[in-house]
Amino acid sequence: MDSPEFQLDWDRERRTGVAEAVFCQGKSPDQIECIVEAALTDGRRLLLTRLSGAAHATLRTGTQDVLDYDPSSSTAVLGGGIALAATGIGIVAAGTSDMAVAREAQRTLAFGGHRAEIIADVGVAGLWRLLARLDELRACRVLIAVAGMEGALFSVLAGLVAAPVIAVPASVGYGVAEGGKAALSSALASCAPGLVVVNIDNGFGAAAAAIKMLRAAG
């Protein structure tokens, strides 16, 4: 039974194509415990995002035991994994520092049954690294690109592939690039047609957009 503090939207996947997920940042341990208990009672699978290692450590041992927790992406899955299909989604990370956001996207896709490889450390500082993977990139139906600093990867990638590119500015950088604002501005101001942009560090949102694109394409 839902608490007055939350209402789980189990109909969301049928209605929108994207399953219910719980954003844990800002929620108390008791609130997270109640949400997990409600999902368990209903026999539902559930994705939890932005669940920090510190927050995960405060959960009761019994709750931790039923969650598949991944500290590298700050995500947890209740209900176990499902068979993954190669549906044509790829993830590109400009640098190793962008991997947390890329893995959040990957885990979100896996929760929905989509297998997605991460092509990592292919930022434009060494353009040959990206070009060496171009055949793989061009085989994808949708690409999620994660980059911080100046975010130049977004325009370069979108100018090389036919697939739609979803840009995820990452809060990686310092000075004028601090907090991902420079990468966000770069993505929004890109001259590469067909580039779409989600919020800073929003790997979950990028994955949801990719799922919707494939759903719309049939």
Rank of each mutant, 00 (worst) to 15 (best):
E178Y: 11
K212W: 00
Q64L: 10
R15G: 04
R12V: 03
L8R: 07
S73F: 13
N202Q: 04
L8M: 12
A177D: 07
V122C: 06
G205W: 06
A94I: 01
G194W: 01
A145N: 03
S190D: 01
A21E: 11
D98A: 03
T87Q: 14
T41C: 15
P71Y: 14
N202P: 08
D9V: 10
A19M: 04
I89N: 07
E20Y: 10
A189W: 04
A182M: 12
S74N: 15
E5D: 12
W128A: 14
D70G: 11
L47H: 13
G194P: 02
M149A: 03
T16R: 02
G79Y: 04
A206K: 02
S3K: 06
T58E: 15
G148C: 01
L184C: 09
M1I: 10
L184Y: 09
R60W: 14
A83Q: 08
C34F: 03
A19S: 11
G179S: 04
T49N: 14
G179Q: 01
V77W: 11
P169C: 08
Y69C: 11
G180C: 00
R138S: 12
F111M: 05
S3I: 01
F6E: 03
G123M: 00
R141N: 15
Q106M: 12
A145K: 02
L131S: 10
A39N: 13
M149H: 05
L160P: 11
G95T: 05
P164Q: 05
L134V: 10
N202I: 02
G180A: 04
I82A: 08
V18H: 08
W10Q: 07
R133Y: 11
R103H: 10
P193V: 09
S190G: 02
A210R: 09
A210M: 08
G26Y: 03
D9M: 11
A152V: 06
D65E: 14
V122P: 04
I200L: 01
A207D: 12
P164K: 07
A206N: 04
S3Y: 08
R60M: 14
G81Y: 11
S97K: 08
P169W: 04
V18G: 00
S155E: 02
G205R: 06
D121V: 00
G175I: 03
L143H: 05
A100I: 01
L195A: 00
A19R: 09
E104H: 07
I211P: 06
R12G: 05
A217F: 02
V22A: 08
A206Q: 03
R115T: 07
S155A: 09
I200N: 00
A167D: 01
V122G: 03
E150K: 06
A147P: 09
V146G: 00
G95A: 12
L143K: 02
I211Y: 09
K27G: 12
T63R: 10
S72T: 15
S185V: 14
T75V: 11
